[in-house]
Each structure stands twice: as structure tokens, then as C-alpha cells.
Nucleic acid binder design. Structure first.
Lengths: 239, 239
DNA sequence: CGGACTATTGAGACTCCTCAACTAACGTGG
DNA sequence: CCACGTTAGTTGAGGAGTCTCAATAGTCCG
């Protein structure tokens, strides 16, 4: 649907994480066509259906993945039965981190999604050869580290509406495919709750409050329009 | 003090983040002596006093840092006056992430600390040339990403004692310089609170409870001994 | 059209936060 | 060496916010 300007094949996108260039200037890195071909040669394309699980926590980790289009979640089930979502992944996001040779969480598609799977054994030698390409991965992972820290910040907040506001902004940053002031939520309330460390009821109450206060409005349960942006910014800005 | 078996000069340590080798087997990567010399040639040694600030949020980012010995904190001050600590850094940890050419948080030493500062302009070309060395950085950052996700998990918990238990385990993982069952806390209660998203009173009450329940005991305010490890594990294990 | 899942709303319990007073530890200077 | 002031840490009471449990509406899909 949003395939208009996207090249087929794996790609990564990240803000350069180190102090190069002029301070204050945004620098983004995209794969060159040649690098994209290199990766494409190694990759297997996967078309995942909604709810399809790409891999499970604890399984031997043989590949890393790049999301081409769609959305996924990475989660972990706790002994108590609770589930915590560690990250949502969208186009150009990489995933498949392992520890001691095993995946550390389970990854599942939220909707129809296309991914690229690249075998570790094939990728690592290529990265060892191609420092330029590896540099992209380094930038990307660093980008994700920052994002994860941002999330930790959000989750530390007390108020549910504040957390939800930060969540909206995070989604907006990640999925600029959207028309102005429109944010799509491809996940359920309960998934948002598991991500933010709230109960799904609290998420529901938070959205209700934001709607009541004319900060946002819903076009269906999974599409948000921002009405009062200053107010949203203020709520999100971690006061 | 703990310099006994440590080589002078920058070093990184990380668990290999991808699925190489036998699943279940821990693999660690250490810099080779040659790589260490390469980094040392680029690095400036810094001896930081307690409370010394290495750089401030928003400053133009010209260098990345590696902690050789000691401990630091990376924090951000919020508009409300609250302070959130994003990470504690110990030996072999790298820091100095930037976004758009500026540091994203402030870094301050907790005690006497030696660091290595490496100018970005010098480092990047070396990494572009030396894929092997860059690979170490990739592993390290990935390691930190996992750690950050773990923290987000901890901060999402409801109970203060649970959060504190996870904090203890995190410290234990990071600073194995310690004798068995002994964990040193080089930071204040209030810094722990800012890290865990609690009030310092809650941290104090949490420690008091763990002491009351004979799970831990204090040798001075900054040294913990684990008495009942199973109980600590249970508290930490995110039930 | 029916059924199952998702989302909303309400009432009471629980936990932490804030405010405040107090104690302990530390470093400094007389 | 001790007195003092400052900072760090502990403990108590009340209030705010979320969680849980439960019942009700809404939505999607077959």
C-alpha cells in the first residue's frame, strides 16, 4: 500500500549516531543501491501474515531480520503470565538479537508484513569485509539504543496519559508514512499496555481522557488524528 | 586499585550478540592487543574526579569515550526539575552517543575514574578501514541495547523491591570485580531512584525491607552482601 | 446473523509519591 | 580533637494514581 517510493529489497535507515558534520544538522544514512543488492543477494524474502511468529524466545538464533514493510512486535512472556513488549518494528528496522546463540524474545507480525531474513553465517563475513555496510548496521543499532532509552524514560513516568502521549510521538517519529497529524496504531490496546507497562484499562482511560480534552480524535480504533498538538507535546515532554 | 589484571588502554567487552557458535555457549569478545594499541594511539587518557562532568547534554559531540576504570552516570534533566539517569557506566563500557551532532545526555563521574576519549574524526576512518575493530563496537552497542531493554523491563514493574532487586542483579552482572555475593553500589540512593523511576524514599524503604527479610545486608551504605540468593532471584525474576 | 474478541467504564484495594521531621555520616575549620 | 554545618539516608502520615475485578458496549469475521 505504501510501496510507492520504496525500492524492493532490504534497507536500513538511521540518524547518524556520532558527532559528524555540523551540530544540529540532521544526517540520515541510507543504503546505497550496491549495498542493497549485496544484502538482497543474501536475504530470503518472507511474507508474514498477521499473528505469524517469525521466531521464538530461546530458539537457536540463525538469522537476523530486516523489516521491509508492515509492523511487528518483539515480546517476552513473564513467569507470572504477564507479557511485556520490548519493541515495535516498522519498515527499515532490524531485529533478531541473540544472546549466547539464542533469540532473547519472540517476534510476531501485527499485520501483513514483508521481511528479509539473512543468515548470520552469510552476513558476518560480508560485514567483516565491507566496513561501509557494517557502519550502517552500527548506526542502526545505535539508533535503536537511543530509542530504547527513550522508551525507558517514558515507562518511568507516573501518569498513564503522559506515557501514552510519548507513545504516540514515538510512533509518529517511526512511521512518517502517514499524512500530517494522522498516526496509525497497528496494535491493540492490550499491546500498547504491555509496551508501556500499564494495564489495558489504563490505556483505555488515557485515550478517553485525551479525546475528552480535545487533544486527539479517533478515526476508527486504530487511527489517531492529532487536534491540539501543543497540548500533546506538553503531555509528552516528560514534565 | 582493581588494576591488577587489566591492561592499560581502552578495551571493550561484550557478549557476542548474534547467533554464532553453539547455542547456549557464552562467547565474549575482547580486543586483541593490536586493536588495543590502535585505539590507544587515538585516545586521550582522562582522569576524572568524583562529580566531574565529562560532557553536557546538547554540547557538540566531538568524541566517544571508553571507561577504563571507575563508574559514571549518564543523565538528563527534565523540565520539571526531575532527573532521570539513563545508564551507569563501568569498566569497558563505551559512551558518548550523539544525535544530530550533539550529545543526548550529560555524563558525570561517580568516583575517581579513568576514561579514554577518542575523537570521532579520528575514529570513524579507522573503523571504516578495520572491519574487525568495528565489529567489536557493533557487539558492544548491541550489548548495551539488550541491557537497556532489560532496564525498561525492570522499570516497568510495579513493586519497588522488585525493581531494586533487578538493579542489584544488573550491577552484579556488570561489575564482576567483586568477591562472591558482594555488590558495591558506587551511587547514592537518590541516583538509584532516578535510575529506577522511583522516589528516593521508596528506594530506602525497599532496601530496608530486603534487609528486614534477611535477603541482603549492608556493609556500610554502599556495599551489599547477598544473604538469601534464591529469594533475591525470585524477587528479581520479574514475576 | 451470531460468536468471539476487543474496548470501555465503574468501584474498591493497593502501592507509591509528596511533605515533613528526624537521624546518621561526612568534611571542614576552629 | 571536637564542634559544627552540610549532605545523605531513614521513617511516618496522608493523598494521588493505577491495578484488579467485574459488567457492559462495541467490533470484526465467519
Amino acid at each position: 500500500m505504501h510501496q510507492t517510493s520504496r525500492v524492493p529489497g532490504p534497507s536500513l535507515r538511521a540518524v547518524v549516531p556520532f558527532g559528524l558534520g555540523d551540530p544540529g544538522k540532521v544526517m540520515r544514512r541510507l543504503l546505497t543501491p550496491r549495498q542493497q543488492r549485496t544484502l538482497a543477494a543474501l536475504a530470503t524474502r518472507i511474507n508474514a501474515e498477521p499473528r505469524q511468529i517469525l521466531y521464538r524466545e530461546g530458539a537457536p538464533a540463525g538469522s537476523i531480520f530486516i523489516c521491509g514493510d508492515g509492523a511487528l512486535k518483539a515480546f517476552r512472556d513473564l513467569p507470572s503470565g504477564k507479557r511485556r513488549i520490548l519493541a515495535f518494528m516498522f519498515a527499515d528496522d532490524a531485529f533478531g538479537l541473540a544472546e549466547n546463540g539464542r533469540y532473547v524474545n519472540t517476534v510476531q507480525a501485527l499485520k501483513k508484513t514483508t521481511c528479509y531474513r539473512i543468515a548470520i553465517e552469510a552476513l558476518v563475513p560480508v560485514l567483516q569485509q565491507d566496513a561501509e555496510l557494517q557502519w550502517h548496521f552500527l548506526c542502526k543499532i545505535t539508533h535503536e539504543l537511543r530509542e530504547s532509552q527513550r522508551r525507558a524514560l517514558a515507562v518511568g513516568r507516573r501518569s498513564a496519559t503522559g506515557r501514552f502521549a510519548m507513545f504516540l510521538k514515538m510512533l509518529e517519529r517511526r512511521t512518517q508514512e502517514s499524512p500530517k497529524n494522522s498516526i496509525s496504531l497497528p496494535m491493540s490496546r492490550s499491546e500498547i499496555a504491555d509496551y508501556l507497562g500499564l494495564s489495558l484499562e489504563s490505556v483505555s482511560r488515557a485515550t478517553a481522557q485525551l479525546v475528552r480534552e480535545q487533544v486527539i480524535e479517533f478515526r476508527g480504533a486504530h487511527e489517531v488524528r492529532v487536534i491540539d498538538r501543543p497540548k500533546l507535546e506538553k503531555l509528552a515532554s516528560n514534565l
